[in-house]
Amino acid sequence: MTHRRWFTPWLLAGPAILWLAVFNLWPAVNTVILSFTNAKPIGGGRFTGLENYGRLLDDAQLADALLNSIVFMLVCLPLLTVLPLLLALLVQRRIPGITFFRTAFYTPVIASAVVVALIWGWVLDDRGLVNGLLGQSGLSRSPVPFLTDRWLLLFSAIALTVWKGLGYYMVIYLSALANVPRELHEAAAVDGAGPLSRFRHVTLPGVRPTMVLISALISVSSLRVFSELYVLSNGLGGPGGRDMSVVMLIQMYSRGFNGHLGYASALSLLLFVVTLGPMLFLLRLNRKAA
């Protein structure tokens, strides 16, 4: 026996189990229940059957939001699987001062998305740094509407997401690179393989599983975008509200006079369904590793 009284483990795990039930399992169940009602921030709550789900089908803003997520994913996937690997190779060798560079490259990761978006909003402003430099160099006469054009705003949000994510994935790659046996590199070098050939035949195969893992992580996070778009567009979602993400729609419908908690819940379940694929894939990768 590891303990004398049968309830000791339940006593220790009690608070966590309470949180599991109250703040995780119950809200999950309640999301499903709410999605069949017309619950409002004030009042409502009548059962309305599949009405909210019908509304999902002809919501033009949702269609835009899903399109935005796909664009987000398509741009972020190649950039954030390749650039952080190159960055990790750059900071891998323990040369003097490398800890400083590593820490500096990680800084955008620990900064709040709100802080980062406010900084970029200022850098990309009509009268901001980038437009100032562009105007000065004569590259563009009128300011580039980074934050007021439907597509430029989306790409600005993508750019800052990539910039903020570099350090995060760099650290994961750094950890993976540390696990590629030195002997393989040395053997390849002895056999006359140059740096490029060693990268292709030793490094790449060594970090391939990590690349798969990172792709899955990026797929999930592309679907969960919120703060970047929200802050860059001042909470409005760009021209005509076309630069919304699914999470922005969820937030929009959970508050205010036009709020609709039932519909927000249906949107949440949609978000759950589209993230489930990459999430389960991630969990399987984790299982295999353990």
């Binding site: 599991l20 969820i250 908690l261 819940s265």
Partner: peptide
């Protein structure tokens, strides 16, 4: 198993009913 299962649930999915709670 239940603790593990919550990991596939992104926080944003339950945020509406968490607010209701």
């Amino acid at each position: 198993g239940l603790f593990l299962a919550t990991l596939v649930l992104p926080g944003e999915v339950t945020i509406v009913s968490q607010y209701v709670l």
